[in-house]
């Protein structure tokens, strides 16, 4: 009577649900690392994060505000390799190494806050739209359409113009712009997922709507959001750097975009380091998250998952 063996018997006998989940996570990790470009992305991300976390150890934190560039007025426009200023200094005596290291911390702070908030807000709004549908869906999605129709840079500029230039306002402006993408992605996923028969199965059992959303709909819809969030970790730093470059952040902030902006005047005079090195950091950051995000997408793609 019984079909003797499962089609794919597990290699080792599992001891319990936790072991299964750990092993599944391990499988996904292994799958991600199989692709060399994804691995490169992951390595870059890891080193950037390490640098951000170790900032107070690598450099001596500026007082009172560590996120402000320390000014060494005695060493202006020093080239890289100068003792005490390994990567040189800017035209205002800022240490480029300090800017690079604490800029990573700024970027991390920025992207975690923005991605965190937008992902949560977007998921909630998209879930309401997709799961409830009808009029609610109409209203939310029209709002999303309107926001998507405005170029994010111009929108952020407008907000900064109204609220005044500050890094906090950049975070606010980016948050307002970026959540719509998540709302749209999750809504599309939910509309697709909620027609699966396992959702009907849960209804037949008599489980509550909230439980169905929590157990069946959301977990099966969230994958593309995770991928998008990874890509956005990079994109947001890029956009923020652009905004600070055109002067929407406070001057003197240890932020890559600000440093590029400060250093650009010196390029014609051959002082390449003050803007090129922070610019390369922005590039490296965005590239790393894009590489990793693309790899993650390939692994988590529902069409290829579970093959």
């Amino acid at each position: 009577m019984v079909e003797a063996a499962a089609r794919r018997p597990p290699a080792s006998s599992p001891s319990g649900p936790l072991a299964i989940r750990v092993r599944r996570f391990g499988e996904i990790t292994k799958e991600v690392l199989r692709n060399p470009t994804t691995t490169i992305g992951l390595v870059i991300i890891a080193s950037l994060l390490l640098m951000a976390l170790m900032a107070p150890i690598i450099t001596e934190a500026n007082t009172p505000d560590a996120y402000q560039m320390p000014r060494d007025w005695g060493a202006i426009n020093e080239p890289p390799g100068t003792p005490g200023h390994l990567l040189g200094t800017t035209s205002t005596g800022g240490d480029v190494l300090y800017g690079v290291v604490w800029g990573a911390r700024t970027s991390l702070r920025l992207s975690v806050i923005v991605v965190g908030i937008t992902m949560v807000v977007g998921t909630i709004m998209g879930s309401i739209a997709g799961f409830i549908g009808g009029k609610v869906d109409e209203i939310i999605m029209r709002l999303v359409d309107v926001l998507l129709a405005i170029p994010e840079l111009i929108f952020a500029l407008a907000i900064a113009a109204v609220l005044g230039p500050s890094f906090g306002n950049i975070i606010f402006a980016l948050t307002v712009v970026f959540w719509v993408k998540y709302a749209r992605i999750i809504r599309g996923q939910i509309i697709h997922v909620k027609h699966n028969e396992y959702v009907d199965s849960a209804r037949v059992i008599g489980d509550s709507k909230l439980n169905i959303y929590r157990k069946d709909v959301l977990p099966n819809s969230v994958t593309p959001v995770v991928v998008q969030a990874t890509l956005d970790m990079g994109n947001i730093v890029l956009v923020a750097a652009t905004l600070s470059f055109i002067g929407l952040a406070e001057a003197g902030l240890a932020e890559w975009g600000v440093l590029v902006s400060e250093g650009q005047a010196g390029i014609s005079a051959g002082r390449w380091w003050a803007s090129t090195i922070p610019g390369a950091m922005v590039f490296l950051w965005a590239l790393a998250f894009n590489l990793f995000g693309d790899g993650l997408r390939d692994v988590l793609d529902p069409r290829t998952e579970g093959r």
Binding site: E197, S201, V204, D216
Partner: peptide, 20 residues
């Protein structure tokens, strides 16, 4: 609800792929 259950045609899509 308890007394009326349903078995679907497609046993692939009627089982949540993320549940044990």
């Amino acid at each position: 609800r308890r007394n009326c259950q349903f078995v679907f045609q497609d046993a692939f899509s009627s089982l949540n792929p993320r549940h044990l």
